[in-house]
Each structure stands twice: as structure tokens, then as C-alpha cells.
Design a protein around this nucleic acid. Structure first.
Length: 467
RNA sequence: GGCGCGGUGGCAGAGUGGUUAUGCAGCGGACUGCAACUCCGUGUACGCCGGUUCGAUUCCGACCCGCGCCUCCA
């Protein structure tokens, strides 16, 4: 009955102890919207979707905030090179992101603040930092955070402030006082998108928007802050420095970071140019297959993306769906109710309680499936139904098994042959079988197989799926 | 160079001081007209070298290899 979370700040698993009983305030760094989401984004999206689904299933009230950073140098650059209006570009990619996450079965966050809608909060926090002496206004109108003023700097990423200093070149020019200092506010250049501020027209630096938005949405101190693998430094380190200096209290209790998605052993990233967009992958694979792939390894470990791993994920999901095939829709009870029913759920919960160990949780599902198949073949209808309810219930906690089994199994693969064409051939094969013309029946089966359609004869008739 | 993570059976991927992970693939069997699905059985897996221990893949130390962050990136 104890949920443990790996806390990046502590470098160990810790018991989850909410600030307010049974309530979790969670903030996750979302996208900077200047391009389509890639698989790396999908991993963070799905990881924290599972976290929120599980926390809720465990009875916590979760206030899930995931921001959108819609003002940033990269957006400005992209808009310029596209010859596209700044706000048209961000609107376009925000819409695309919403489409992508919906298709992946990612539930929307409770709040989705945008930097451009929180400009007052941002400016107020920068002002506070200036007033408290943690920030200074440079000659050109930029405002910088003075890292040397924050003694705990580096705690999250394990860096020592003076070591960061030691590695510095003396090429900072005359704008920053210290090369470690980072921009809270950037003065606008000619005809750039900008907002009015006490320091002149400009825009926020990269990190301040998350400090301001998290405070606005969740308060100065909240439970969990999450993000991708490349965010501990500098982004989250800087958030801590800003928030704790401005608010005078601890910022976050638990820091969670997802692992990287790799391609050919290298990190998938925009700067390496080796990324696959979600929409690109979804043209070939069912969204739940992608989701399964992302959940089939622990959220903190690196995951390797390839056609082979996707294909394996598909095969595994097919096994789960095959078990549910032909079982009438069942209402899904809550996790607590399921826990009383069977040991599978208890093992599932134990796995998830241990820092969201989804691979282990999935292994429980497969053991359940074996028992389900056994019960079914022995005609134990009640048991079969109960196990199916559990399977669907546990799947739902992971955001899996949400499709109709027939639909899932018949989807994907090559669509050279339409469903209607297949049905026609199946009818012909049935006739051939009745006529004991097995040669003809096998011929049809092989023909379908060549086109990616696999048949399964059963007492109730012939089932099919796409391979 | 600094900080950190990891090397598990053909592949993917959990975990544990002594006992079956799990999935895919393979092999044998049952079922089947034959298949498929399903079920049963089946794999001398834990980078290398030392140490601790009755016993280590699991703890400790050294080493080798891979990766991440340290600059924009989820």
C-alpha cells in the first residue's frame, strides 16, 4: 500500500507523501511548439499519462498541469524561415499536438497554460527576482538571473556551482556578469514579437515561463514535477533557482524524468535530425501499438526505436486482444474493487507502486491471459468473464485495450484487401470446406495469407486478422 | 575533464543473495481435415577480474564497453 517514486533530486526511490492528503499536484514540461511531436515527446506524454491514470486509479485526486511554451527563439526563427506569422505557426503546431496526443490515448491535462497567456505572471516573477537582488538588468535591456546568488544551484543535476564556473571561457562579452547566468527576459530586436515590460519591449527567457505558470496553476510548492531526459540541466535547475528565490520556499518535492528514445543507439533529437514524428509512425502502426512499445520498458530507461521493436509490440498486443475476442463488452470496475477479486490485480498494483514498473505490470497481464484462455477453453464462463473484466480494467489503467478486439485485430497491416473482399473469400472457403474441397479451401487461405490476412477456424466460424 | 545511467538467454525487457519473470522467435507435444488460435513441455542468461559469503547475476572494489547531461533539444 505504499507508492514509491524515483526522485531525481534524491537519486533514489522515495515514498510518495502528498503535501495535501490524497491530492497530487503535478506539473510536466510540455512542448515548445515549433514543429510536430516526435516519439521522444510521445514517450513523455505517455509516461505521465500513465502516472496520472495510475494515481487516480489509486484514489488520488490529481491536478495535472502540462504547459505549452509558445514563445521562444526557435519559434521566432522557424516562423521567419517559413515566412509564416508567429501566432499562426504556434496555433498550427498546438492543434497538431492535440491531435497526436488524442490519437495516442493521452488524456488531456487538467490545465494547459500557455506562456503567452501568462505574461503578467512572468513579468511579475522577474520583477520579484530583480527586487530581491537575484537578477539584474543588463545594458541592452536583457534581465539575467545571477546564479552566484543562489547557493543551492546545481542540486538537481549534481553539478557544483564553481565547477560550472571553472569550465567557463571568458567569452561572455560584457552583457552577462557571469557565464552561468541565464536570461529571464530578452529585449526584443526590431520587428520581433514582443510584450511590454518594465525593462522595455521583449519576451521571456526559456525557463521563467515554467516557474511562473506552475506557481499560477499549482502554487509555489507542489508535489511532482516531470519532464524529458534532457531537462534536469539546465531547465529544471534554473526553474528551481528562480522559483525558490522568488517564492522563498521549496519548489517541488519529487522530480521525475523520462528516459531517452534512441535510434540506432543515438538519442532521437531534433538537433541530430534523426527523429520520427508521431503522425509519421501512426500512418503505419496502430496508436495502441506505439503506446504499448513506450510502456513495455520502464519509463526511466532508454528505449530503442526500430521497426523490429514496433513489430514485437504489435505481436504482444495481439495476444492480449485475442484473449478478449468474442467476450461481450463488460463494465470495468475500479482498481480497488478488482484488488479484492484476484491476485493478478494485487501483483499489478505492487508492480505499479514500485515507481510505475509498467513492464512488470504487463507481465501480470500476460499471466492473466493464460488463465483466461484456459478458463475459456474449459467452458468456465463466469471465470472467463471475470478475468476479462480484470484484464480490461488493468489495461485501462495503462491506457491499453481500449479498442474493440475485432477492430484492433483487423486493423493495420496492408490494406490491399478490403474487409468486404475478405468476407467474400471467406464465404467461398466455407463452401469449399462444406464440400470437403480442402485443396480449394487451403488455396484461399494461402492467398489471404499472402495478402496479410490470417485465418482462424473455430466452432463458431472463421475469424480473421491482419498480420 | 565533471556529473550520472547502463551492460541479463536469438531479440525485447523485468527482477532477485540460494527457488519459473514476461513477450516475440525456436524446438517437442495436445488440439485441428491441414493450419491458425490456444494449452502443455522445452533454453545450462546474467560484460570481465578479484573480494565478502556456506552460496552472487544480485553486495563491495578495480577494469572493459556503451549511453546521457554539461550548448538548443522531451
Amino acid at each position: 500500500m505504499a507508492l514509491k517514486i524515483y526522485n531525481t533530486l534524491a537519486r533514489s526511490k522515495q515514498l510518495l507523501q502528498p503535501i495535501e492528503p490524497n491530492k497530487i499536484r503535478l506539473y510536466v514540461c510540455g512542448m515548445t511548439v515549433y514543429d510536430y511531436c516526435h516519439l521522444g515527446h510521445a514517450r513523455v506524454l505517455v509516461a505521465f499519462d500513465v502516472v496520472t491514470r495510475y494515481l487516480r486509479a489509486r484514489g488520488y485526486e490529481v491536478d495535472y498541469v502540462r504547459n505549452i511554451t509558445d514563445v521562444d527563439d526557435k519559434i521566432i526563427d522557424r516562423a521567419r524561415s517559413n515566412g509564416e506569422a508567429f501566432f499562426a505557426l504556434t496555433a498550427r503546431f498546438i492543434a497538431a499536438m492535440h491531435e497526436d496526443e488524442a490519437r495516442l490515448g493521452v488524456l488531456p491535462p487538467d490545465q494547459e497554460p500557455r506562456a503567452t497567456a501568462h505574461m503578467d505572471d512572468i513579468i511579475a516573477m522577474v520583477q520579484t527576482l530583480v527586487d530581491k537582488g537575484y537578477a539584474y538588468v543588463a545594458a541592452n535591456g536583457d534581465v539575467y538571473y545571477s546564479v552566484e546568488k543562489f547557493s543551492r544551484y546545481g542540486a538537481l543535476s549534481g553539478k557544483k556551482p564553481d565547477e560550472l564556473l571553472a569550465g567557463a571561457r571568458i567569452e561572455t562579452g560584457d552583457i552577462k556578469r557571469d557565464h552561468r547566468d541565464f536570461a529571464l527576459w530578452k529585449a526584443a530586436r526590431e520587428d520581433e514579437v514582443h510584450w511590454r515590460s518594465p525593462w522595455g519591449p521583449g519576451r521571456p527567457g526559456w525557463h521563467i515561463e515554467c516557474s511562473a505558470m506552475s506557481k499560477s496553476c499549482l502554487g509555489a510548492h507542489f508535489d511532482i514535477h516531470g519532464g524529458g531526459p534532457d531537462l534536469p540541466f539546465p531547465h529544471h535547475e534554473n526553474e528551481i533557482a528562480q522559483s525558490e528565490a522568488a517564492n522563498g520556499c521549496q519548489f517541488v518535492n519529487y522530480w521525475m524524468h523520462a528516459g531517452a528514445v534512441r535510434v540506432d543507439g543515438e538519442k532521437m533529437s531534433k538537433s541530430l535530425g534523426n527523429f520520427f514524428t508521431i503522425r509519421e509512425i501512426l500512418t503505419e502502426y496502430h496508436p495502441e501499438v506505439v503506446r504499448y512499445l513506450l510502456i513495455s520498458s520502464h519509463y526511466r530507461s532508454a528505449i530503442n526505436y526500430s521497426l523490429e521493436t514496433l513489430q514485437t509490440a504489435r505481436g504482444a498486443l495481439q495476444r492480449l486482444y485475442t484473449a478478449l475476442r468474442g467476450i461481450d463488452a463488460v463494465e470495468i470496475p475500479g482498481l480497488a474493487a478488482l484488488e479484492e477479486e484476484n491476485g493478478f490485480t494485487r501483483r499489478f498494483v505492487a508492480a505499479m507502486d514500485d515507481d510505475f514498473n509498467t513492464p512488470l505490470a504487463l507481465s501480470v497481464l500476460f499471466e492473466l491471459v493464460r488463465e483466461l484462455n484456459l478458463a475459456r477453453s474449459e467452458g468456465e464462463e463466469l471465470k472467463t468473464r471475470d478475468l476479462a473484466r480484470t484484464l480490461k480494467g488493468l489495461g485501462a489503467v495503462l491506457g491499453l485495450l481500449q479498442q474493440d478486439p475485432e477492430d484492433f485485430l483487423k486493423a493495420g497491416g496492408s490494406d490491399a484487401l478490403g474487409d468486404a473482399d475478405i468476407e467474400v473469400l471467406l464465404a467461398q472457403r466455407e463452401q469449399a470446406k462444406r464440400d470437403k474441397d480442402y485443396q480449394r479451401a487451403d488455396e484461399i487461405r494461402n492467398q489471404l495469407k499472402d495478402q496479410g490476412v490470417l485465418l482462424e477456424d473455430s466452432r463458431e466460424g472463421t475469424l480473421w486478422k491482419r498480420s
